[in-house]
Design a protein around this nucleic acid. Structure first.
Length: 788
DNA sequence: ATCCTCCCCTAC
DNA sequence: TAAGGTAGGGGAGGAT
């Protein structure tokens, strides 16, 4: 980027920042996108890894360590060469590329870079629409036009748009050392497509003459907004999904196949036409809270309590943006009657039927409201009206629409003045009063136990429960909006009276139109104070973004969520198992060792010892298939299902472990942990009404031992063994939570009538295998493998 | 003819 | 489509 005068931006601004006189093919739109954002950002502090296959993983456990089931959030281009894609599991990735390197999240850095990114863009853009943390659309028509005229007067033949894009890229690169790619064209559609060719680390200006050839080979699903379903429809009804083929279809045909708007959009897109405007400011249209995981109600009381919790959450979210609503929708997922009571995925919703019901939301005085009681009442009414069996519910969502600014709503119809206090709620509720961490934190070292020469390195793949991943995607998804709001307020602040920024709502006639006009002039001259020294109002916005980006690992994975679950939580679990020394000795457990163990392990050990001691054998199942319903259950520390699912297998059991193997003939040869886990899962699923058969247990044990024993240079074996054991434990907890540990101080626990012998037998089997595994690892590594 | 509701689809 | 969460847009068909 040589010394052209790009950087000197004249404070001229005859052009309206927006409202480009529709007759444009004159726009210059840029789609700016970081290249593998998380990885690039993570590599800043690890330059030695540049050029290597690197990925960032969503971790599943509470330690933050990536387990084999972790999902890849971002992958370097080198990693992609191996076929690694975002969204696949770490395990898959390792198969494609054993030497793949995983690096941790660095949210602070993402935040910082995102800010830099937006700062640079804001500085140069006439208009900006944020798409996500690392992606934005900008309109640079004015600037490029100016450049163009300058260039012409200089007789340059360059493409000023591309030059400008390169300048932006350079600016971001300079500040972050990361590459962004920029696609340029005269509309959003084409700019987005151009980015494909710009990547990685480049820019590409898609100009009109190239358009047909550019589009021709593409597939319908390459177009933004056209996904899987549309593709199917196109294939079925139009016989092709290829753009050039589709171009031959008449508009009528497309509309008939895909609907009016979609058909028309496609028709235009095929010709490179897209007249969508950038949207830098859109009023929020709905606020919702939805939980489709872990829903297991025993009765209506629980369902209602839950609904009400969700209602307060929705209120919180409404208050946070000073909005109130007039309409509520309840979304329900109910178990598909043909689906098993318990889906394959632990506490997942499984196959479900969906139901929506909408109703007015009427606050006091007939006004729009954010009142949690009103919302809760209404939501509960709606749910009741379905007359569903609470046990069948698998997912619940509450959505509030027809939003209005709350200050407007509080105002009496006639416009009685309302104190423009930034509602108390938005200040107080969400921030400080967060309940104390519900989520147990693992010892910090756990995963990072790389410290010593400890051979038990295989980063204890944590696998507690399907915790909401630390990087809850919704957090990221929420960003664009915040960024947008941030930008909005900034635009307003700069363009208008000091007044506007104080006005809460983006009223109906929002946007630049409502403020004094001289927007661009103002903006241009302020390139240097994009972040003015006195960033009061705006900084708080940015801080909100920062807050969202911050990993939740510490205090709670998702405060809101976990507090939602709190109502169903059993009373606090003791920090350690209550048991006397003498009792321990009686059970032949070394107290010193015992208390050093994590509580989970304590329980395991204890239960096992008890069973062995008290019974001296593993209880055989009554041939009766009567299910002993656990009356009591121990909730996993990290997550609380509402009610321990009742085991109710519906399939007639072929209770053999090995039969479940994919390749029947091949005995048991698993290539992937997943396979084994699947087998274990169906084994447990199918056989849980009886105690496990010795043969099966032995068999699994052999496998585990083999894994643990085989561990060499690669710790794959160990990890696999751990993963399988963890999975097994999860399955058992799901079915026999009550039997995992019995509290001997609790007479109820000890009452035979309430004990589940089958469950105990399964747990005993589990401990047996674990013991065996531990024995091996002690031998090999001098330590015991932790399952936590 | 337009609006509303109940969905489904898409993106992030 | 592993599963989950939030929001916006559109289609179909009935309501107004």
């Amino acid at each position: 980027m040589r010394g052209n005068a790009l950087v000197m931006r004249l404070p001229t601004s005859k052009w309206k920042g927006k409202g480009k006189a529709a007759g444009d093919e004159e726009r210059v739109i840029m789609h700016c996108d970081f290249d593998c954002f998380f990885v690039s950002a993570g590599l800043v502090s690890r330059p030695e890894l540049k050029g290597k296959p690197v990925i960032v993983c969503h971790s599943q456990g509470s330690t933050g360590g990536a387990s084999s089931t972790s999902e890849i959030a971002s992958s370097s281009y080198e990693a992609r060469k191996f076929g690694i894609k975002n969204g696949m599991s770490l395990q898959q990735a390792r198969q494609l590329c054993p030497q793949v390197i995983t690096i941790p999240y660095e949210f602070e850095r993402y935040k910082e870079f995102s800010l830099v990114f937006y700062t640079v863009l804001m500085k140069h853009a006439d208009d900006l629409q944020s798409v996500s943390v690392d992606e934005a659309l900008i309109d640079v028509t004015n600037t490029v036009n100016e450049l163009r005229s300058q260039a012409q007067s200089r007789g340059s033949t360059q493409d000023p748009a591309k030059d400008f894009a390169e300048m932006i890229r350079a600016e971001v690169r300079k500040a972050t050392t990361c590459e962004i790619s920029i696609g340029i064209s005269h509309n959003i559609l084409l700019a987005r497509l151009a980015t494909r060719r710009a990547k990685p680390g480049g820019s590409y200006h898609l100009t009109p003459p190239e358009i047909p050839a550019f589009l021709a080979p593409l597939d319908i699903s390459d177009l933004h907004g056209f996904g899987w379903s549309t593709k199917q429809k196109a294939q079925e009804k139009l016989g092709t999904t290829n753009l050039s083929e589709l171009t031959k279809k008449s508009k009528g045909v497309l509309i008939e196949a895909l609907g009016k708007a979609t058909g028309e959009t496609l028709y235009n897109a095929l010709r490179g036409v897209d007249d969508k405007k950038l949207e830098s400011d859109k009023p929020r249209k709905s606020v919702s809270c939805e939980i489709n995981y872990g829903i297991r109600f025993e009765n209506n009381e629980q369902a209602e309590a839950f609904i009400r919790q969700m209602a307060t959450e929705v209120k919180k979210r409404l208050d946070a943006i000073d909005m109130v609503g007039r309409s509520i929708t309840l979304k329900i997922m109910k178990r598909d009657p043909t689906a098993p009571v318990e889906p394959p995925k632990f506490l997942g919703h499984g196959a479900c039927d969906l139901f929506n019901k909408q109703s007015p939301l009427i606050g006091p005085g007939g006004r729009a409201t954010s009142d949690d009681e009103v919302i809760g009442d209404q939501a509960w009414r709606l749910l009741k009206s379905f007359k569903f069996d609470p046990k069948e519910l698998r997912g619940i969502g509450i959505q509030v629409q027809k939003l209005e600014s709350s200050s407007a709503a509080t105002t009496a119809p006639a416009g009685q003045a309302v104190l423009a206090f930034r509602t108390k709620a938005s200040v107080g509720s969400s921030k400080d009063v967060m309940p104390p961490p519900e989520i147990r934190i693992q010892p910090p070292s756990n995963n990072a136990a790389v410290t010593s020469g400890d051979p038990v390195k295989p980063s204890n793949p944590t696998f507690d429960l399907p915790s909401f991943s630390q990087v809850d995607k919704s957090v990221l998804a929420a960003l664009p909006r915040d960024i947008r709001e941030e930008l909005e307020s900034e635009y307003k602040r700069r363009s208008a009276s000091p007044f506007t920024s104080a006005a809460p709502g983006p009223g109906p006639g929002r946007g630049p139109s409502m403020g004094p006009p001289p927007v661009p002039a103002n903006r241009r001259s302020t390139t240097s104070n994009i972040f003015p020294a006195k960033p009061a109002g705006r900084m708080s916005n940015i801080q909100r973004i920062a807050q969202q980006l911050r990993p939740r690992s510490r205090s709670s994975l998702s405060p809101n969520k976990s507090s939602l679950y709190a109502w169903a939580r059993k009373p606090e679990k003791p920090k350690h198992v209550k048991i006397s020394l003498s009792k321990l000795r009686e059970l032949k457990l070394d107290p010193e060792v015992f208390f050093a163990l994590p509580i989970k392990v304590q329980r395991e050990q204890l239960t096992r010892a008890r069973i062995l001691q008290e019974k001296g054998y593993i209880p055989e199942p009554p041939k009766e298939r009567k299910i002993l319903k656990p009356k009591k259950f121990v909730l996993p520390p990290d997550f609380v299902p509402y009610i321990a699912p009742k085991p109710k297998a519906r399939h007639p059991p072929p209770p053999f472990l090995r039969q479940q193997g994919k390749t029947k003939g091949e005995k048991l040869y698993f290539t992937e942990t997943d396979d084994v886990q699947r087998v274990v899962e169906s084994w447990v699923d199918v056989c849980h009404r009886w105690a496990p058969r010795d043969k099966d247990v032995e068999f699994l044990q052999k496998y585990i031992v083999q894994c643990a024993d085989r561990a060499r240079a690669t710790d794959v074996g160990v990890e696999r063994a751990i993963a399988v054991m963890q999975w097994w434990r999860i399955l058992l907890r799901r079915l026999f939570a009550a039997s995992e540990v019995l509290d001997e101080d609790d007479p109820e626990d000890m009452a035979l009538s309430q004990r589940n012998l089958i469950g105990e037998a399964w747990w005993a089997a589990f401990y047996q295998v674990k013991e065996e595994m531990d024995a091996i690892s002690r031998k090999r590594f001098g330590g015991v493998l932790s399952l936590n």
